[in-house]
């Protein structure tokens, strides 16, 4: 089996997509995508609804394969290995490239178990479980709020707390990259801000790719921004990809400028 050990590589880029085409049955949802994601940076993916942002994101940890009609061509290089190689196990991929979903989805278990379950079942962590639970909850800026109620149900928390719990759960299995699909879109503005602050903290240790339909969020919170749009066949494609400051002040493409200034989408 190919090794996906994150320590085995420390190149500049954590993930690199090469000629990626993603299909649902006969429908091509994303076409000819080539892009690289820099380590310990936050990259935002923006674009109109239905242009394939989520599809692209889920291609990076092979989550799409849960959809039976999905298939992909091209390569996604993670630490020097194409994760689509036949000898790569998607289960292994997802453990190193974690994911946070649009709607908070804690397990219907206690707060403690939400974080500890993955550590126990997925990693071969040898230390004390309590320690990694605390550490993960601290990383997710949730520890102070829940340290006294660890045995309560994760579902009893507020939406914003639930989402941070999901982030803690993802961090607990020590991924290398964290994919986030509109993690704040179901939250109120204050909870959204907290998640954005949290993401800034996390980039010290993780490479973060975040899909958002909120342009202010992309502008505030990311280092790089990738803009996707749809062609006439509704296939998503990468229009422009650059530093966020450049994208929002002086984009190369007319389409990007129109989208960012709110003229469509």
């Amino acid at each position: 089996m190919a090794s996906l050990n994150p320590e085995s590589s420390n190149g500049r880029y954590a993930i690199e997509a090469k000629d990626l085409n993603l299909y649902y049955g006969d429908f091509r949802a994303v076409k000819d995508t080539n892009m690289k994601f820099e380590r310990n940076k936050i990259t935002a993916i923006i674009g109109p609804s239905g242009c394939g942002k989520s599809t692209v994101l889920r291609a990076f940890n092979r989550m799409n394969e849960l959809i039976p009609i999905y298939h992909a061509t091209g390569e996604v290089i993670f630490n020097g290995t194409n994760i689509y190689n036949d000898d790569v196990d998607p289960v292994e991929v997802r453990r190193h490239i974690g994911m946070v979903f649009q709607k908070p989805n804690p397990f219907p278990k206690s707060i403690y178990e939400n974080v500890a379950w993955g550590v126990r079942k997925v990693t071969n962590y040898k230390g004390k479980l309590d320690d990694i639970v605390e550490q993960s909850l601290r990383q997710a800026a949730l520890w102070d709020e829940v340290k006294d109620i660890l045995d309560q149900s994760g579902l009893a928390l507020s939406g914003g707390q639930q989402q941070r719990l999901c982030i803690a759960r993802t961090l607990a299995v020590k991924p290398n990259v964290v994919l986030m699909d509109e993690p704040a879109s179901a939250l109120d503005p204050i909870a959204t801000l907290r998640i954005e602050e949290l993401i800034q903290e996390l980039k010290k240790d993780y490479t973060i790719i975040i899909v958002t339909h909120n342009m202010q969020q992309a502008a505030r919170a990311s280092d790089y921004t990738a803009f996707f749009n749809m062609d006439e066949d509704r296939a998503g494609f990468l229009v422009e990809y650059d530093r966020t400051t450049k994208m929002f002040t002086n984009p190369e493409k007319r389409l990007t400028e129109d989208y960012i200034s709110g003229r469509f989408g």
Partner: peptide
Amino acid sequence: VPNSLRQASYGIGATRWQTIWHHVLPS
């Protein structure tokens, strides 16, 4: 059982069997 629960489990690198046994069946 909501699909989001399965996604949560797969998303942290659980196998199909772990997902079924620990999350889907209890729910």
